[in-house]
Each structure stands twice: as C-alpha cells, then as structure tokens.
C-alpha cells in the first residue's frame, strides 16, 4: 500500500516535470518516464498484459513519435527559448501548488462512495476475453489502425499540382 503511494507521488512529480520543463525534448522523455511508472502501477494492479502494452506502445512508440516530431521541427534560437521559458514560468508557477492543494482537499473530503460489486467474473484470462468474448474489439482495432494509416497517408500525400 505504501509502495503504491510512493509510486503515485513519483508519477505526479514526473507529470509536473513533463509540463513545466522548458525543453520539448526533455518533456517528451519525461512523458516516457511517466508512462513507465504507470505501467509499473498497472502491473501492481494485476493487469500484466495491459502493463506490457503501456510499456511497449506508450513508453516506446509514442515517445519515438514525439522525439521524431521535435527533431523534424527546427529548434528555436537561444533568445526565443529564454523568452518562452520566462513566459512558461509565469503561466505554470502556480500549477504545483494547485495540484498539491487539490490532492489534499480531495484527501480531506470524506466522499461516501456507495459502489456496488458487480457479478462474479466469468472469465479471468484477458486473452480469452480479447479473442473469444470480444472479437468485435479486434475488428474495431484493425479499422482504427487502417483509418490512422490512411489519415497519415492523406496528410503527407504530395500535391499533384505543379
């Protein structure tokens, strides 16, 4: 239980670092670390397959996408970076206090949640649920992936006009 709280605090600290750092590249790397921490939490919550997906796809692929995009866009000059840093500090200086205050307020407010436990689980294996009980999800995933691929192709299609 205590270990969970330490991991959750690390997750919030990394997320704050992600949004407050002045370098975009550093923000993308911190986002990857946040994602890795979330995958540890998922593993601790008895969801190993989802944790592996989070670790490989969100920590790996999405970070590569972000870093490639930052690499493709030209970095700004030093004066611009300094100007942006001052502007960002002005905007984000209250964020840690807001987040900590919000967390303390939520912790102090004793919310009575009357959650009802649903029926007992029929299937305990995620692979069986994925492939046998919810096969439409797989078809949906394939359609979404194809939509993404065609979307990117259309976005980067060379114009025929000379």
């Amino acid at each position: 239980m205590n270990l969970n709280i330490f991991i959750l605090i690390a997750m919030i600290a990394l997320a704050l670092w992600t949004v407050m750092t002045r370098s975009l590249l550093r923000a993308a790397i911190m986002l990857a670390f946040t994602s890795a921490i979330i995958s540890i939490l998922m593993f601790r919550l008895n969801s190993p397959i989802a944790a592996v997906f989070e670790l490989s796809v969100c920590t790996g692929l999405v970070s590569v996408l972000f870093i490639s995009t930052i690499g493709l866009t030209h970095p700004s000059v030093k004066e611009e970076t300094f100007e942006h840093m001052v502007d960002r500090l002005r905007k984000f200086k209250f964020l840690p206090f807001i987040i900590i205050g919000m967390g303390m307020a939520l912790g102090l407010v004793a919310v009575k949640i009357n959650l009802q436990l649903p029926l007992a689980e029929i299937e305990t294996d995620a692979r069986t649920v994925m492939w046998n009980l919810r096969p439409l999800d797989i078809i949906g995933q394939v359609i979404i992936l194809l939509s993404g691929v065609f979307g990117v192709i259309i976005l980067f299609k060379e114009s025929d006009k000379k």
Partner: peptide, 25 residues
Amino acid sequence: HNALTQAMVITFIVIEVVVMTVAIG
C-alpha cells in the same frame, strides 16, 4: 474484472496511438 478491463485498455491504447499519430501528422 481484470480480464475485461485489460482487453478494454488494450483497445484504448491502440486508439490512443492512432489519435496521436494523426495529430502529430
């Protein structure tokens, strides 16, 4: 209901990556 939520999360992660890819494009 770990199995069901894991299946949902896997679908959600696929959607997330596609949305991010198109948004970055």
